[in-house]
Write a protein that binds this DNA or RNA. Sequence first.
DNA 1: TGTATATTGGACTAAAATAGTCCTATATTA
DNA 2: TAATATAGGACTATTTTAGTCCAATATACA
Lengths: 166, 166
Amino acid sequence: MLRISKLTDYGTVILVHLTGQARLCPASDVAADTGIALPTVQKLLKTLSKSGLIESARGAEGGYRLRKAPRDISAADILDALEGPLAITECSGDDSSCEHEPNCSAGGAWQQINTAIRKALLDVSLAEMHNPSKEFPLVYTVLGKTGAQRQSEVSGPMPETSKDNP
Amino acid sequence: MLRISKLTDYGTVILVHLTGQARLCPASDVAADTGIALPTVQKLLKTLSKSGLIESARGAEGGYRLRKAPRDISAADILDALEGPLAITECSGDDSSCEHEPNCSAGGAWQQINTAIRKALLDVSLAEMHNPSKEFPLVYTVLGKTGAQRQSEVSGPMPETSKDNP
DNA sequence: TGTATATTGGACTAAAATAGTCCTATATTA
DNA sequence: TAATATAGGACTATTTTAGTCCAATATACA
């Protein structure tokens, strides 16, 4: 199924949220603000930190923040971080290890598609995801909502948070 | 994980194989020729038949064949048939049922990506998959192989066939 | 220095999805 | 009528994904 994972979706929500923050954000705050369960938030933040998209600080006053400007982070970066290199089939990764590649009859076609997908992902930045109404009139009405309400309604049912979330 | 399923991959192999056949092909022949297990072949052929990409004939002398010319069948058609409508997130399907869509902050961006992916898929036809060397010089060397050998090496390890397949 | 806070690392479990298997009913031809 | 092949569908096994939890480590502050 050609679909990004739910965790990737959550990760995107988290990154979009961090876009609006200047200071270090503890996982507990991110969870409360996004409505995603704290353990899930922690898990994703760890992965994102490891991948270099965000930076972290341990201890009191610690937390996470974006390492680069939102417009310098593409959807491709996000997917690479959370799902690994894009490869819609075994045959279409950049570093394809498909042992049948030299003789593949369909692999070249999937490779072309893979390349197009990657380009599409590179063309969309976190900044655009954060401010979609600039680029995508179909969600223009989102401007009438408050920030917190927007995030809590982003991507289908959210996992239970560790805090009350009305 | 942004990846087509293994069954879709097999399904593609099967369609590519049917491209080279003029007559009705029984599932048993398709299985023998592609090296895919008969039950799996039967399962996929049923689905493909149901979706309208191929037509079937029951009974003695029965089998399956393409319903349209290979160049009129796109990768998008194949995916639609085997995986359902393309929707990389809940928010990006053509008939999105995401209840949060009116307030989605990232959905517009995913929608753009979804559209680009769909276009890439529409741009590649079964005919091109069948004759990749025309379009993709990187697999030019495939011409030195026999047809049967090519197919058996297409997409990673094949499931065991119900027949001997050296 | 001790404590509170927050990340890091990693293991484990539950749920969901995917792939594979098998059986019966139905249709068609010889 | 028998042989052949699809159609329908259920079930099982395996893999993947999402969720849960615990202990170790790092940092700031009193």
